[in-house]
Every structure is written in structure tokens, then in C-alpha cells.
Design a protein around this nucleic acid. Structure first.
Lengths: 150, 150
DNA sequence: TGTTTCGTTCAGTACGAAGTAAACATTCCA
DNA sequence: TGGAATGTTTACTTCGTACTGAACGAAACA
């Protein structure tokens, strides 16, 4: 019975690794997130390496990446030399508003290519804006969700 | 003056290539989309190859991929042996509802790992569901947008 | 029927990203 | 001060994916 929970745990971790890979993050970072979500409590640096069977170097780069994105938080324990990690507060909210920002940036980036396109090429402008509009609508909707989350 | 429009065109195409790459599609497919968005009218198979400076093989696989996703449409012209391509009707709407579906699938996939987790592990269940909820909320919001688009 | 024009498929290649291992820097403790 | 523990950095390796180029098959034309 305990066996199946263990299986579920590693399944969840692996799945989250794959999912976050599709979001453009390294799989390792996703697996770390998975472990931290499952555990809930702070997990030691070395435990991440041993449990996920990855090198300390990978743990270092991945945790730093996740820290920079405010998805996890590095904490310390009194009398403990090791670093511990746990989910950052509002981590999901952060992820969602980050996604919103990504779409916004893409939209703006595309629209900026129209700077040198004269007014007369209205049809081209309309089509490019159409794509950019889709992206900004996505950004808007997702931003809305982010605001609803706290 | 024409020069700058040409520059804007290739900039747009390259940018869309990069953007669609972040969405998990091959860059080539994104550049094809970019060309088709810019032009608006059907573009010949061979013109895709020469204008984007890619092999016919790449054109073949990328167009097939985009066709399968209902993002572009293959059309023919009377008396013309070449295939032509243009944006599919409702292509943006399709892309958005596809995105919604992706998040839905991820959410369901994650939640399914809880099947073997007993009720007593309520804290674990809550955390996993928290992540899945974020994904399904995204799916929901984006699906909403898709419905608003037609 | 032979030839040309197309699009597809597939083997090979190139490239980039991610992970490893080891060297390194720093901190803590004896 | 010496040494162990801890995290970071970097050179190298691995792996997957995307692209090329050529062979192939099918269809149109002559």
C-alpha cells in the first residue's frame, strides 16, 4: 500500500518534469518543483540530488533558476549548514502572471515590426495586428486570472 | 522606402519563427506561418522553400504539421500543378483552443497521479490539486477567450 | 511511353540544450 | 591552521530535435 504512494510520488514528479519542460524550463527544474510540491516542507539541497538522482551541479543551477523566477525559496535551518528549499509563497500566482507577461512581450515584439510599414499597406498591418491581438488577448485573460488568484 | 518594408517583412517572419518555437513548434513552421500571415494570399510550395531558404523536405514536413493542426490550409489552383498554402480559416481561434486543451490535458494528467493516494494523505492531495487547479483555471480562461473569438 | 514536375520519405548530419564530474571557493568546526 | 562540508562554476559529454539532400513515388504532359 505504501508502495503505491511511492509510485504515485515519483510519477507525479516525473510528470511535472515533462510538463514544465513544455513550458520551456529544464526538466530537472520541473522535477525539483514536483518534489517540493509533493513534500510541502523544506527539502535539503543534498536530498534533492540523491532523491532525484542528479548531480549537485544540476541541483545548483536548477534551484538558482527557480529562485530567480520566484518559484521556490531558499531557506536555512538554525544549526544546519545545508540549504533547504520550499515552494515560494504565491508561486502559482507568480507563474501565471509570468505567463501573462510572456504573451504581452511577444505581442509587443510582433507589433513593433510594423513601425516601418507605411499606412498604405493597411492589409498587411491588419493581419500582423490580428496575430498580435491574439497574443495580447491571451496576456490579458491570463493576467486577469493571476489577479484572481490571491 | 520599399527596402524598409522588406526588412520589416523578414523581421516579422523571423520573430514569429522564434515565438512559435517557444510554443513547441519547429522554427521553420513558425516562419512559414509568418510568411503566410504577412502575405495573406496563397503562397506556392516552392516559393516557401526559396523565400525562406529551406529545403523542400523541410517545407513538406512543416506544412504537414501545420495542416494537421488546422493552422494552414493547402489549396490548389486550376491549371497549376504546385500546391499553395494559406492561413486556415479561424486559425487563431484554433491555436487558442488548442492551447486551452493542452492545459486541460496537463491538469488531468497530474490529477490522475492521485488515484492511488489514500484519503488520509489529505495534505499531499491538496498540494497536487493546487497545481492542477492552476492548470485547469488557465485552460478555462483560455477556452473562454477562444469562444469569444469567432 | 518516356520525361518532367511535384511532394514525400528517410538516412545522415549539425546544432543546441541539459546534465555530469571535477576543480574551485567559501564557510564552519576541531 | 587544517580539514571537512557545502554550493558554484566550468569544460566536456550526451541526447534529442530539426534540417538537409537524395532517393523515391505519383501525377501531368508531350
Amino acid at each position: 500500500m505504501e508502495q503505491t504512494v511511492e509510485t504515485a510520488r515519483s510519477e507525479f514528479i516525473e510528470k511535472l518534469g515533462l510538463i514544465m519542460q513544455t513550458e520551456g524550463l529544464p526538466r530537472t527544474a520541473g522535477r525539483i518543483m514536483g518534489l517540493l510540491v509533493w513534500e510541502g516542507t523544506p527539502v535539503a539541497f543534498c536530498d534533492l540530488a540523491t532523491e532525484l538522482q542528479i548531480s549537485r551541479g544540476s541541483v545548483s543551477t536548477a534551484t538558482r533558476l527557480l529562485e530567480d523566477k520566484f518559484m521556490i525559496k531558499r531557506v536555512t535551518k538554525a544549526g544546519e549548514r545545508q540549504d533547504y528549499f520550499q515552494l515560494a509563497p504565491k508561486s502559482y500566482e507568480t507563474m501565471v502572471s509570468d505567463l501573462s507577461r510572456q504573451f504581452r512581450r511577444k505581442s509587443d515584439d510582433l507589433r513593433s515590426t510594423l513601425d516601418d510599414v507605411p499606412e498604405c499597406a493597411a492589409d498587411i498591418r491588419a493581419r500582423v495586428n490580428g496575430y498580435a491581438d491574439m497574443l495580447s488577448s491571451l496576456s490579458e485573460k491570463i493576467g486577469e486570472l493571476a489577479r484572481e488568484m490571491d
